[in-house]
Simulated scan of single mutants.
Amino acid sequence: MIKHFTHPEGKFIIALPVEWQYKNVAVGEKEEPPFSFELYEETVGCFQISIYHENEKSIPKNLKKQKCNKDNLNFFQTRMDGGGFNMHLFYAVVEDHLFMAKYIYQTKDEKLEKISEELVKVKKALQTLQLLSSERKVEAIAIDKYEKFMSSLAASFDLLHIAYKNKSEIEIIIITANQIDAYLRLAIVMKKQLISNTNEIDIKLLYQEENDKPIFERHIYKLAKELVIINQDIFDRLEYLYSDRNRMVHRYIISDLKTRDIGELSIEYVLICEEIRLILASIEDDQFNKQIGIYGGKRNPKEEHSKESINFLHSQVNDKHLVASLQRKIDLSSNDKLDT
């Protein structure tokens, strides 16, 4: 069971076990080499991978240059043990870049079966490593951002569950408003794919960097109406709810808004959110039937999810939360299906 890690700038892609957590973000480190991965639970070692251009680090002349966009690279392997730690090192040169990978664990654990299992995973992962060409970078980044968008949407349901459990109507409103915005953004991307007969993902609607010009939710409402995703009635209700929500957030104390009104507002948000979810589902079906876009593949969106896809989602959701109490268990048993 795998998930893909894409270099932040799309330089390379590698398939990793779903039970490995990306540690750079988890521990607050910068997203730069080395990129580090460990088991979510009962970790025994750390896998790290780095990439350097020949201008950053000299490339050993004894290593043969290999081609980009190719997996199953040849790695030079060596060991560097000492100071209470064992280190397995892997080197490969691809075009004008040097890959350096390592697996580190404590010397006292070298006889553990788990170490042997993790080393097998390391070698399998390295077989999937690819340096990407400029054209492939764009596609890889788009897919990575889309997957993170979907995992963030999934993670929001954990927060919504907590809000329902705590009967926190304000939280329900805020989270549901986020979900409505997400559904409409995805619907717009998919409707444009259908109109243009393309599989390309307009990622600017699904992911915004800190310095990107924001695309606000009211603009999303307008785009959805222009593309006939929502009708005038839904648009007007969204505008009304947006105004009331802002009054709740910013003017609860200085306005005549009553606490009872917040409960009624939360119900209206939940109802319209479900309406929009069903609209999105119909666009998914349309894509599948026409074999265009995100859902233009072999899998019908109405089919039961495979265990592998659920484990992948759980892993991505864990990386979104980074909260122990919300961590999902990665099921590595041999059953093909899981309950969703």
Rank of each mutant, 00 (worst) to 15 (best):
G45M: 01
G45A: 03
C46L: 15
F47R: 01
F47I: 04
F47E: 01
I49K: 09
I49S: 08
S50Y: 03
I51M: 02
I51G: 01
Y52L: 12
H53W: 11
H53Y: 14
H53C: 09
E54C: 10
E54A: 09
E54M: 11
E56R: 07
K57V: 06
K57L: 11
K57N: 03
S58D: 14
S58K: 14
S58M: 12
S58E: 15
I59N: 09
P60M: 10
N62R: 10
N62P: 01
N62S: 12
L63N: 01
L63T: 03
K64T: 14
K65F: 09
K65M: 11
Q66W: 04
K67A: 15
C68N: 11
C68W: 09
N69I: 06
K70Q: 15
K70G: 03
K70M: 12
N72W: 03
N72E: 02
L73Y: 00
L73F: 02
L73M: 01
N74T: 14
F75C: 04
F75K: 05
F76I: 01
F76C: 03
Q77H: 12
Q77M: 15
Q77V: 15
T78F: 03
G83K: 03
G84T: 08
G84I: 15
G84E: 07
F85P: 00
F85Q: 12
M87C: 14
M87R: 10
M87Q: 06
M87V: 14
H88C: 11
L89P: 00
F90W: 00
Y91K: 04
A92K: 01
V93W: 09
V93S: 12
V93A: 13
V94M: 09
E95H: 10
E95Y: 10
D96W: 07
D96F: 07
H97N: 13
L98K: 08
F99A: 01
K102N: 15
K102L: 08
K102V: 05
Y103N: 04
Y103W: 10
Y103V: 06
I104C: 07
Y105A: 01
Y105H: 13
Y105D: 00
T107L: 06
T107F: 06
E110G: 05
E110V: 08
E110A: 10
K111M: 09
K111T: 14
L112A: 07
L112G: 02
E113D: 08
E113P: 05
E113Y: 07
K114P: 05
S116M: 04
E117A: 12
E117Y: 06
E117N: 12
E118V: 12
E118W: 04
V120R: 12
V120E: 15
K121N: 14
K121G: 04
V122Q: 00
K123A: 08
K123C: 08
K124F: 13
Q127H: 12
Q127W: 05
Q127N: 14
Q127M: 08
T128E: 02
T128Q: 03
L129G: 07
L129R: 10
L129F: 11
Q130A: 02
Q130N: 07
Q130I: 04
L131C: 06
L131H: 04
L131T: 03
L131D: 00
L132Y: 00
S133Q: 10
S133R: 12
S134D: 06
S134H: 07
S134V: 10
R136K: 14
K137M: 02
V138C: 12
